[in-house]
Design a protein around this nucleic acid. Structure first.
Lengths: 233, 233
DNA sequence: GAGTGGTCTAGACCACTTT
DNA sequence: AAGTGGTCTAGACCACTCC
């Protein structure tokens, strides 16, 4: 029993979703159908589907079926944008400005990003909440993985939804390192604050469903009116 | 089918662990035994145990059995102490100083903490890494929930391990709000830094296995040599 | 009514650990 | 050899959704 049967079922479905064969919102075959298709029992197919639901990749609804999880700007921001009001609620951020650059990758970027890209696309954005600039983000992605992206500016508000819809790249995890620093010049200007004010620096590696590092991001965040909210367990 | 059978099995085991009947490291009955005891099938007992393992409350090992998860200072710090070196590894922090106070609870504390305590115990600590003070923490817990604690100073390095061993209070989750602020006077003095330097403020609510808010904590953290490392999904 | 997932059972065989 | 969890199957019944 080298690899369990249900694991190959999981892998098959993940591949179908990551390959675009099962797009966002699509209904999966029923447990019984899936079992017949893949030559396993309904119980084994069920175990795979439950695991996929726990990963957030599909959603199951009694009486309706199993569906590929739909990511909207709202759900994506809810997971991956952590600034919250004092009462914990999410103020929808607006995109204030955006600029795109295509440039040679640094050694570090080539080493970290999936596919060891020699060229990257850099996306610089400022987000605001209730008219106040609160975050200055610089994202870096491998150019070969996102053909044509550099020519599509302005990009949608939420990158990860766009990645999934246009490139079948599904971000499921973000590893972050946080530090309190004095606002660097560029960010201070972008956010309209005094240089040297304390800001939260967030350096992120975004990982997709195939466990590939897809994006490197550095955000400079204002935490005067909003908190960066997380949960450890 | 108001509540599933396996849920009552889960609740039974959680109660036994939280009640001290199954202490840290104890072996649980086998799936079959548990099924007989509680009048359910082995498969149902199994589903409950798997759920408990996912919550981190027990650990299962093929051929050996199921055991109540042992929390050591190492495992506890690994989960709930997030400062890490650049390479992601954990430098064990040392306790630099500690002071305890018993005092009347503020209105906010009474409202948030389990049991609406009128009196609380305040634990103030400074932690250091390689001889450098890096965190100034103030914890507040309800006095009635921890009888005799105020007289036991100095407390062990890791509070949550101590809570579990001495009071069967098992912390499983910490909800945190992060901000970058200018170091307040008291913390600046405790950490030996200039007042006004940027520091990471972490306000935490620690939740136990019975879903009760047990501790309120405010940490002022230096993020010069170490990062605050988290993962979103 | 037909089809879906949710729960529960019973039994089989395998892999691993301990004695 | 005995006991444990890990996998897999087959079938039953229930609750829910949709037509």
């Amino acid at each position: 029993m080298a690899t369990p049967l249900y694991q190959t079922v999981i892998d098959t479905i993940v591949a179908r979703i990551a390959g675009g064969e099962l797009p966002s919102g699509a209904m999966l075959p029923s447990e019984t159908q899936l079992g017949v298709e893949l030559g396993v029992s309904q119980g084994t197919a069920r175990k795979a589907l439950i695991e996929l639901e726990k990963r957030g990749l599909v959603q199951r609804a009694q009486g309706r079926g199993t569906f590929v999880t739909v990511r909207t700007p709202e759900t994506s921001l809810f997971s991956f944008f952590r600034l919250r009001r004092a009462d914990g609620s999410l103020d929808m951020p607006q995109l204030e400005s955006e600029s795109l650059r295509r440039r040679a990758a640094t050694e570090r970027e080539t080493g970290l990003l999936h596919g060891r890209p020699a060229e990257v696309i850099e996306i610089e954005r400022v987000r605001s909440i209730s008219g106040r600039a609160v975050a200055h983000e610089v994202s870096v992605i491998g150019a070969p993985m996102f053909p044509g992206l550099a020519e599509r500016s302005p990009l949608p508000n939420t990158l990860y939804v766009f990645f999934q819809q246009a490139y079948s790249v599904i971000i499921v995890q973000a590893d972050e390192r946080l530090r309190a620093i004095s606002a660097p010049q560029a960010s201070a200007r972008a956010l309209g604050i005094a240089e040297g004010s304390p800001v939260l620096e967030v350096r992120r590696q975004a990982v997709d469903v195939l466990d590939r590092i897809v994006e490197l991001r550095r955000s400079i965040t204002l935490t005067q009116d909003q908190d960066y909210l997380i949960s450890l367990s």
